[in-house]
């Protein structure tokens, strides 16, 4: 296995903590953190069951938190874009096509993920939305497709075992009004 900086594993551990929090709350256990200048500035985990919105993936939760913060602080669109271009995402599972597209739109710098996502993956498994697209006219460079560096397989077995235990306990994200109740966070 390639050698990564120790901090890569430290940040992935934090993402795994988020995933565990999802599991406890009967959500698909995927979690993430967003890091800027070696500091965690946002974290997120799946909230699809709670919100009945199947797009509320960990990445979207963390991104929306950041955008809201930066808007509150009065950052311009250009400043928001500059901040994202310095951010690294650590996520326990390969971003799906939706999240990979979103990360490309935001112009994130880099992504580290745990296990691959062979059904929905947007960073190489099904589509490769992280690679930049040289055929596009370069006349509009600032507004054209941006790629990001993407590395998979970081603590993948931990990520997989969380997912496995979720699917073994049955998918509660199905229409069952009598699902067991968990204390609210």
């Amino acid at each position: 296995m390639a050698s990564y900086a120790k901090e890569t594993f430290e940040f992935m551990k934090l993402a795994l903590e988020q995933a565990k929090d999802a599991l406890v709350n009967l959500e698909v256990p995927v979690g993430c953190v967003i890091v800027e200048d070696a500091e965690v500035i946002a974290s997120g985990r799946n909230r699809t069951t709670e919100t009945r919105n199947a797009t509320r993936h960990a990445e979207m939760e963390a991104i929306d938190f950041l955008v809201e913060q930066w808007q509150k602080n009065g950052l311009s669109a250009l400043e928001v874009s500059e901040r994202f271009s310095k951010c690294i995402l650590y996520v326990t599972c390969e971003p799906c096509i939706m999240c990979a597209a979103a990360l490309s739109y935001l112009g994130i710098k880099e992504v580290y993920y745990g296990c691959g996502n062979d059904k929905f993956g947007g960073c190489g498994s099904i589509l490769s939305l992280h690679t930049s697209c040289p055929e596009l006219p370069s006349s509009e460079l600032a507004s054209s497709k941006k790629g990001f560096k993407c590395t998979g397989g970081i603590m993948a077995s931990e990520a997989v075992s969380l997912l496995r235990s979720f699917y073994e306990q049955g998918n509660p994200n199905a229409p069952k009004p009598h699902r067991p109740l968990k204390p609210q966070v």
Partner: peptide, 17 residues
């Protein structure tokens, strides 16, 4: 149609996604 273009808006910041 222009999902990468949000950063070019002239003032303020909407929600890119």
């Amino acid at each position: 149609v222009h999902p990468w273009r949000w950063a070019l808006q002239s003032s303020g910041c909407g929600c890119p996604l």
